[in-house]
Design a protein around this nucleic acid. Structure first.
Lengths: 215, 215
DNA sequence: GCTGGAAACGGAATCCGGTTCCGCTATGCT
DNA sequence: AGCATAGCGGAACCGGATTCCGTTTCCAGC
């Protein structure tokens, strides 16, 4: 892997760049032919570096996973013990909403295992420190927190950038369910019916497919 | 639509039956050729009745949506005012887990609009009656309830039948966030790390694709 | 009951996009 | 410079959705 020819390394990078560009436009529906053309290489070359479309997509997604992990690390450094999990969920959602990743390159991709594993550690820490400092209910587990992260990801993904109000409010609501003590008044503004309709519409389009637009 | 030939009506039904059968086996990855063969008709006939694969899948999913709606109606009749939303969420999750529907035929399909619309009405009723009877927090809206349903659906879908403990527990947790008064002790058993791993594995397979198995 | 023509049908042909294959080329080591 | 080989390009292959059109079936009118 280290002893590869310089031109090979250069091409690999070109493909990666081209793929990122295509992915930004067409989501995970990107075409291999298009990637090859944009990278200025043959399709064979694309397949030399990434054995399948799926592998290519995962390769693009990797930086995103790493950013998610880096985010968790910085939350551990900077947020007060009791608030870490809540802060992370909010930041995670924001990152996801702006990242443009979609279902095909979820964080459950096999290649992301080490990242996910470390993230699990961190979430576990957040939960236990939250419990110890009395901010989280005593019966909440790391797995609960993970499940919550999972559902938040699904909601954000469906809403995309279309309707951040939806997931912002929902996050506050469910974070409340983990909090120790009586529920607080929601700070987020209630979601209007019209916003909700936009959300559903956007999710529908995303589910159907994305013939997307140009730019 | 009413004045169609009898053979056409018969064939349409055959296609629908065959498609349901294939869908049970291969999920939304069902093949048009296979459907045609099993129905004993030509592919052209399949396309005459359902203009695209997507349309066919939605047609199969319709009964599921209707069952979801029927479920809501019976909950309205049979559950006490304060409990209706909670009961519905649990039943909805159970139905989803056993229905075999997957992402491709989400309840956001355009064809399901009338069903979804009536469901929205019912959910709205559940929420307001729950609030009035003091079971739900005063600041919870129908849209909050919908968002919760959405996330639960995502979690159940990912977990499939693989790990019901995951979503059962999560549902109790988030229902708590809507409940008025202090959080109760969770009745559901905590999720073991091993169960969680199974869940992630299952979700990963589902996301990758479903080459499924035979039966 | 017979017939004209519209509605349906069947399935070969087409389109499309991912993947494979293999002869050719550029690299870098001796 | 010469050679072994990693790497390249892109035509060919393949599977699956969709289209097209000649043929068949139904049924309303005679």
């Amino acid at each position: 892997m280290s002893g590869q020819r310089v031109d090979a390394a250069r091409n690999r990078q070109r493909v990666l760049d081209a793929a990122a560009h295509e992915h930004a436009r067409h989501g995970s529906a990107l075409g291999m032919q298009d990637v090859a053309r944009r990278a200025g290489v043959g399709i064979g070359t694309v397949y030399r570096h990434f054995p399948s479309r799926q592998a290519l997509i995962e390769a693009i997604a990797t930086p995103f996973f790493e950013r998610g992990l880096a985010l968790a690390r910085s939350v551990r450094e900077e947020a007060p013990e009791g608030e870490r999990f809540a802060v992370y969920v909010r930041e995670f959602a924001r990152a996801l909403a702006t990242s443009g990743v979609d279902g095909q390159c979820r964080w459950d991709a096999p290649a992301a295992e080490p990242v996910r594993s470390e993230l699990r550690e961190l979430i576990g820490e957040f939960v236990s420190s939250g419990r110890e400092s009395g901010a989280l209910r005593g019966d909440v587990t790391a797995e609960d927190a993970f499940a919550l992260l999972w559902t938040v990801a699904a909601l954000v993904e469906a809403a995309d950038a279309a309707a951040p109000e939806i997931w912002r409010r929902h996050i506050e609501l469910v974070l409340d369910s983990l909090r120790d003590g009586p529920p607080r008044a929601l700070e987020a503004a209630p979601v209007e019916r019209a916003q909700w309709d936009d959300f559903v519409r956007a999710a529908r389009v995303a589910a159907t497919d994305d013939p997307a637009s140009a730019a």
